[in-house]
Design a protein around this nucleic acid. Structure first.
Lengths: 191, 191
DNA sequence: GTCTATAAGCAGATAGAC
DNA sequence: GTCTATCTGCTTATAGAC
């Protein structure tokens, strides 16, 4: 429990949510300041490199939170197909209800920065790789050989991120539910 | 061939490329003006509702271009698995070479606008639905029943969009190639 | 229809008091 | 460490000449 900078953490948590929902460029510093309840000077004390430094921390936080969430869900099932299906259905339910924003994707940040900001792009890349590694591990434990598991975890990750993009755009979780139904099918076909 | 407004079309083509690559919020009007080679006043004559009206047209153009591209590829193969695999490999090759920007995804625009701009969100939704319909049609012609084809086209669309997000972020096409390899597997497992 | 000049406001960032 | 006032530059949009 390091309480040495609650202010800094609050900036990061606020920014992480806003960047995931609205994007990096659409979220102004004023909005972050207002929602964090902290003044301008405090911000530049904690983040001398400004908005980009904040975004880097925000991406890292989102990455950690999402990793924990995936791990927790996957640990509740021994069968990887069942586990991943449940994880996707959870996200679909969230999008359908849309009562509040949660951590589930950094795709917007990734697409906004891949061509223009190498530092943030790399942070997103690391995040995606760490998500993929969790699925990979689960598949290996379930008996898939390493090469096959690697390929399948890429495909699963693609299905999830794509399903999120489509479900958010269409404002309902049906795309993600269709994806969820196919996870076990793919795993069995590749067993 | 309506030549009645070449200027207007050039605005739309320029904006379509820039919005897809950098996003709506990261692309300023000045940049669009400069790259279009047309002055400010001309822009507001053609688009009285400003940047948002331009974005709407840009999304429609991107949608049409992508639809045509998908249709052309799919018509070259009788087997839907082979056809879709080839389409994905084409996108993967483009991302790997990255010599120039092409029309292949409006995911960035969709994620930027789904929560903040209903008009642009709907345009993106329509675009996604029209892409999905092309895959759907191909599956139905190949003998899948309507319900199954509908579900599978959603999954395929998710895999492609997700694969694009990941491949762009990682700066290589391997995620998309992994997706391409699984298309036929999924179709056979659902036949 | 085309163009320039400029308005009005907001962005990110800084200076310096406390 | 915290706060306010302010700078500079860029944003979208408008006015009005041609």
């Amino acid at each position: 429990m390091d309480n040495k900078s609650d202010t800094r953490d609050r900036f990061i948590r606020t920014a992480s949510m806003l960047f995931q929902l609205q994007g990096y460029h659409a979220t102004g510093l004023n909005e972050i300041l207002k929602k964090s309840g902290a003044p301008r000077g405090s911000f530049y004390y904690h983040f001398p490199n400004g908005k980009e430094e904040l975004a880097l921390e925000a991406i890292k936080l989102a990455s950690q939170t999402i990793q924990l969430d995936i791990k927790n869900t996957l640990d509740q099932f021994s069968d990887p197909g069942e586990a991943i299906k449940f994880q996707i259905e959870k996200i679909a339910a969230f999008i359908t209800k849309e009562k509040k924003i949660e951590d589930f994707s950094i795709s917007l940040l990734a697409l906004e920065t891949f061509a223009s900001n190498e530092s943030l792009r790399k942070a997103c890349e690391s995040a995606f790789i760490s998500f993929e590694s969790i699925y990979l591990e689960k598949l290996i434990v379930a008996g898939f050989d390493k090469e096959k598991a690697c390929e399948l975890s890429m495909v699963i990750q693609s299905m999830i991120e794509g399903g999120i993009v489509l479900s958010l755009t269409m404002k309902n979780g049906s795309q993600l539910l269709a994806v969820a139904k196919q996870i076990s099918v793919i795993l069995k076909a590749n067993a």
